[in-house]
Nucleic acid binder design. Structure first.
Lengths: 184, 184
DNA sequence: GTCTATATCAAGATAGAC
DNA sequence: GTCTATCTTGATATAGAC
């Protein structure tokens, strides 16, 4: 998906994610990004005024992407209590490559300036509130979102590695936490 | 606790953690660390041959610390099925300041070179295995550890902020996942 | 829109004095 | 064990040509 960006901007963002996933946040330099995007430093800086703008761009694109994926998934699911969680989990965890790309923007932004994470913060808070409005206990909602976040970040940092079968088992397990988590 | 290090080495490691927690991984420079530890760059480099050694030192100290905390907690708990999880959760999450210090070493190491995280990886794997040997389903064990990891990392990155009451509710919730998580 | 300079700066690391 | 140079590198960002 990310491989055939139609515009230069997306090509640069794709390249930036690649660098973080493959080499780590430390190596996210304008040089490396430009080389992978088939551009020069100057070319990159035309699209993103400075490195911070690039980081912001990475994060914003991912947030928007996850959000729209989640809504699309949600629309295709029946109106069971766990549909909201299922849509969220799938949007975030489906495909360990995409998942690492999501995490890459968070890690890179956090390393540069934790303040850049504000939009992500808001997104998570809103989603937890949505789950609680849907009848889930607040603690359970938080644990679900934290487990997803833990998996996203841990797999990028290679703190854990689960094979395909284990991964999908874990994803099912997270979704199943919805069932006995409603308020009485 | 960390505030009154008895030896220079620990004082430097404390300073390094402070920098990451307060300013972010990006600002973990020898200059900044030295200044906070009341030393010069040269003084720091006497104790840690290079920056990578400093990162390794941060991580190793935290791993050893958590491990010993967990064992101490474990020894003081009754032999119920959730004692192992309780000890793990408390060792990792008790005190949001300490928790941020744990995460700071992981984030800083990951930013520099993800390969540095090998010892942490091993630690987590062993602990999951221990839980599974204790009778927990593998997926449930993974979700518990992931939720803890998610909370640790998310709070350092300020992706979430929970007040004291919420936090302890969430911690209780994570521990409670042990109860209905055993193999039948 | 993209490239090639180039200026500027900050970081890690070394060597040697104290 | 700790400090003060100093060397070297590599990264951001600017300016101006194409």
């Amino acid at each position: 998906m990310a491989r055939h960006a139609t515009n230069a901007r997306d090509a640069i963002l794709d390249a930036a994610e690649d660098v973080v996933v493959e080499l780590g946040a430390r190596h996210l330099t304008l040089n490396e990004v430009a080389a992978r995007a088939g551009k020069s430093r100057g070319g990159v800086l035309y699209h993103f005024a400075d490195k911070e703008a690039l980081l912001r761009g990475m994060l914003e694109r991912r947030i928007a992407h996850i959000s729209s994926m989640r809504e699309k998934r949600r629309a295709n699911l029946p109106d069971t209590p766990e549909s909201e969680v299922t849509a969220f989990v799938l949007a975030n965890l489906e495909g360990s490559k995409r998942q690492k790309r999501i995490a890459s923007s968070v890690i890179a932004a956090a390393g540069h300036d934790p303040g850049l994470l504000c939009p992500a913060r808001r997104e998570y808070r809103e989603f937890i509130n949505r789950l609680v409005s849907g009848g889930l206990r607040a603690e359970r909602a938080a644990v679900i979102v934290l487990a997803v976040e833990g998996l996203i970040l841990s797999e990028l940092l290679s703190l854990f590695h689960f094979d395909k079968a284990k991964r999908s088992g874990i994803i099912k397990e997270i979704i199943s936490l919805t069932r006995d988590g409603t308020r009485e």
